[in-house]
């Protein structure tokens, strides 16, 4: 079931286009990774979803219907640029934000107690934020984001500035919320956490979506058809056998008669073809496909995108000279 759908969003700022025809869809109960280099337009998109700013054109749908002002109460947002009122007491502060999200006084109070008991921080109630350590303030910030039980949770760089202990804690809470049916949109540069918790992703670069889909599909899309083959026998013989149909990307001798070779399939060849080719010369111990990490995919996609833009730019320039 669809949770959020963004259709053909365009946002123009003086001098540059922050979002250029962006369309993405997220499903209920999934963790969606919104990725992209700095300045790609992620925060602009998130602000539009949160109705902090409006798009120049395009629409946002929540659970299948066009988003309204009141829907803000179903969204929890942890911005990258975040902070709290330093002079305000923790309890007053959490209550204030909860009530701004539409909770009644008694509901807010109940939820506040629940979360503070869960995090074992009830002794902080009457402390001012400026008296708290950074890690403590981060917990409060997180509670403020989720207290009103949002259907859609948007976290912009949730792990930046959090210490490893808090990062683990937050990760655990995110997964638990997912289990309870909350949809989560995660914008981050931390590719490890993307691999770990995201179900699908969209990669934005230069105001456009360049990669989009489930994590599995994206990985499939970026597979390089390269396999790690561990074998017993001579590397020389192995390399010779490959000939023109496969390319040896990398090789490594493990001990006297065991080696690992990374082989890329060329042309229409399959893994079976590769195995058939090398089986006569060596004894195969194991074969694994080398799956690209999100880190690699990110770098490759952005680099390719830049290259094609540069080419396009040069072509246009060349064309106009003629």
């Amino acid at each position: 079931m669809e949770m959020l759908r963004v259709e053909h969003i365009v946002k123009q700022y003086a001098g540059h286009r922050a979002l250029d025809d962006i369309s993405i869809t997220t499903q209920k109960g999934e963790i969606f990774g919104l990725l992209g280099p700095n300045g790609a337009g992620k925060t602009s998109l998130i602000r539009i979803i949160n109705q902090i700013t409006g798009p120049d054109s395009g629409k946002v749908f929540l659970e299948g219907r066009e988003i309204e002002r009141s829907d803000i109460e179903y969204i929890g947002y942890l911005p990258e640029e975040r902070g709290l009122y330093k002079k305000m007491k923790v309890r007053d502060q959490v209550m204030y934000f909860a009530r701004l999200k539409g909770l009644s006084k008694s509901d807010a109070k109940r939820k506040l107690d629940e979360w503070f008991e869960k995090f074992e921080i009830t002794s902080w109630y009457d402390k001012k934020v400026e008296e708290l350590s950074k890690g403590m303030a981060q917990k409060i910030q997180f509670i403020i984001t989720v207290l009103h039980q949002p259907k859609l949770l948007i976290l912009d760089e949730p792990f930046s500035g959090f210490d490893p202990i808090n990062t683990e804690l937050i990760k655990k809470e995110i997964l638990e919320m997912k289990k309870n049916g909350t949809s989560i949109m995660l914008s981050t540069h931390n590719m490890n956490s993307v691999e770990e918790i995201c179900d699908s992703i969209a990669l934005i670069d230069n105001a456009k979506v360049i990669v989009n889909g489930s994590l599995k599909d994206v990985k499939k899309q970026f597979r390089s058809h390269t396999y790690a083959v561990q074998f017993r026998g001579m590397m020389f013989g192995f390399a010779n056998a490959l000939f023109a149909d496969f390319s040896l990307v990398h090789s490594e001798q493990i001990d006297d008669d065991t080696a690992v070779a990374h082989v890329k399939l060329l042309k229409e060849n399959s893994l079976n073809d590769l195995l058939r080719t090398v089986m006569p010369v060596v004894e195969i111990e194991s074969v694994n496909e080398i799956i690209p990490s999100m880190h690699d995919i990110f770098i490759q996609a952005v680099t390719d995108n830049e290259k094609s833009r540069r080419d396009l730019f040069l072509n246009e320039k060349g064309g106009s000279n003629e």
Binding site: I72, L78, P79, R82, K86, F97
Partner: peptide
């Protein structure tokens, strides 16, 4: 204090 973006996600 960067609190403003948190608030404007709830208030116009």
């Amino acid at each position: 204090g960067r609190v403003v973006e948190v608030i404007v996600s709830s208030v116009r």
